[in-house]
């Protein structure tokens, strides 16, 4: 264990006490998990019949289609959100008030409105047609605004020497932003960007509220089918596992990038990354 602020390195007496706590902790944990498993088993959730649905080819293809719909909304949403974020980050950093103030207003606006309400506005209010468009539009605007904040914080955290040097070699404002500042900001903010993308991936599940046939929509549908014995618990477990796997994969990818970045040494050491915490917390 790495040294913690709160606790001293334990002595022999403390170690004994910790062992006791550990034993109690394990007992409580095992009892808790055991209880849940027991109750589910008692209500027949682990019976073969409740899992039979997973064997049918049509169900599998339906689930794969649904998974693809989730991934599709994520990919399109992620790309558009990045573009939106980059444009509005640049806008927020503009020297002209005419550009800066509207850009800030837009970002604040879409950060403040709940994604559910945004998606409802696009689907029921404006009527974009297929649910896919409303989902992607909502994901883009909300996550794009958060990403704009991330990029902005990233650019601001770069040493001023970077832009000064760029101006000194005769670059224009646009060139400084696109060639020097944004690329470095993106690198520096990679972890924050990826954790926002995890949020985007999870939020794509909201599409089920407007009948976008993604993973959760199909889970809800399959879970209600009487012929399969309404396998709500099994399907929740399966779908949760898929989501967790996808998100962990993304997070792992983020860590991998970060590690590679550190090795390449092209990234500047930044003193504080306040935005990273902010974003990690913004769900």
């Amino acid at each position: 264990m790495s040294a913690s602020v709160l606790f001293d390195i334990p002595g022999p007496k403390a170690r004994m006490r910790y062992r006791l706590y550990a034993a109690i902790g394990i007992a409580v944990l095992v009892a808790g998990i055991g209880f849940v498993v027991y109750r589910f088993a008692a209500s027949g959730q682990f019976d073969a019949a409740k899992w039979e649905w997973l064997q049918y080819k049509n169900v599998q293809t339906t689930l794969l289609d649904a998974l693809w719909n989730t991934v599709r909304a994520f990919l399109v949403g992620a790309v558009l959100a990045m573009v939106f974020g980059a444009i509005f980050a640049a806008g927020q950093l503009s020297d002209h008030k005419v550009v800066r103030v509207p850009a800030m207003a837009v970002v604040e606006l879409f950060r403040a409105v709940p994604l559910v309400v945004l998606i409802f506005i696009f689907h029921y209010g404006i009527g974009l047609g297929a649910p896919f468009y409303s989902v992607v539009a909502g994901l883009t605007l909300y996550n794009g605004s958060v990403l704009a904040e991330v990029f902005r914080a990233g650019v601001l955290s770069l040493p001023r020497g970077q832009s000064e040097a760029a101006y000194a070699v005769g670059m224009r404002k646009t060139q400084v932003m696109t060639l020097v500042l944004l690329p470095q900001a993106v690198r520096a903010m990679m972890p924050a960007i990826i954790s926002q993308l995890v949020v985007l991936l999870k939020d794509s599940a909201l599409g089920f509220l407007i009948t976008y046939e993604e993973l959760l929509y199909q889970a809800r549908y399959l879970g209600g089918i009487f012929e399969f014995g309404r396998p709500l618990v099994p399907i929740t477990i399966v779908v949760a596992a898929i989501y967790i796997a996808m998100c962990l994969l993304l997070t792992w990818f983020a860590n991998y990038l970060e590690k590679r970045n550190r090795r390449s040494k092209k990234v500047l050491e930044l003193e504080a990354k306040p935005a990273e915490d902010v974003v990690a917390a913004a769900v």
Binding site: E52, W53, Q55, Y56, K57, Q60, L64, E227
Partner: peptide, 16 residues
């Protein structure tokens, strides 16, 4: 894994 999953697919319906 994906291939294995689709390869073992069952046809038909659970109840007649």
């Amino acid at each position: 894994g994906g291939l294995a999953l689709t390869a073992c697919g069952k046809e038909g319906t659970p109840g007649g």
